[in-house]
């Protein structure tokens, strides 16, 4: 059974038609995961099935050490949203509820390769000289 309702699937499929370039979801899970691990994977599998432009790769956090290192993932479930380029976008945990729409937003932005930010923001970010790590804590509701 899928985690995405049919009525939602139609709407999501429509939103994903905005995609310009292919996007890859790289998911890290582990057996003996917490209760959310299996659900997260199922959700991503369902989602990837809704667009030809969207693909899913799944790795094991304990076994696929090269990939874990490559993506700098330090906890699971983890999901990377990337196109040909890895922008440093990660989701940790099950992207359900409100966060699911955040995931869709990330997929569309990455697919377009455009942040969609205001010109002024782009200018300020271009002047950045130091690495920035943003950790945004959210809850599903």
């Amino acid at each position: 059974m899928g985690l995405i309702r049919d009525s939602d699937a139609a709407e999501i499929r429509q939103r994903l038609q905005e995609m310009v370039h292919p996007v890859k979801l790289v998911h890290f899970t582990q057996e003996l995961n917490l209760e959310y691990g299996r659900e997260a994977r199922q959700l991503l599998e369902d989602l990837a099935g809704l667009s030809d432009q969207l693909s899913l790769e799944v790795y094991n956090f304990l076994l696929d050490k090269d990939k874990v290192a490559e993506y700098g993932v330090d906890k699971v479930p983890a999901t990377v949203v990337r196109n040909a380029k890895d922008y440093g976008i990660r989701f940790y945990g099950l992207p359900a509820g409100y966060e699911f729409s955040t995931l869709l937003d990330a997929i569309l932005s990455v697919s377009k390769g455009d942040s969609g930010l205001e010109a002024q923001s782009k200018q300020k970010l271009a002047a950045l000289t130091q690495p920035l790590h943003l950790q945004v804590f959210v809850t599903p509701t």
Binding site: Y87, F91, P95, T102, L117, P131, H133, L134, Q135, V136
Partner: peptide, 14 residues
């Protein structure tokens, strides 16, 4: 921000 700048990494943590 992460898309705009290569210096930025953004994690969404449940």
């Amino acid at each position: 921000f992460a898309i705009e700048s290569d210096l930025i990494k953004a994690d969404c943590i449940e």
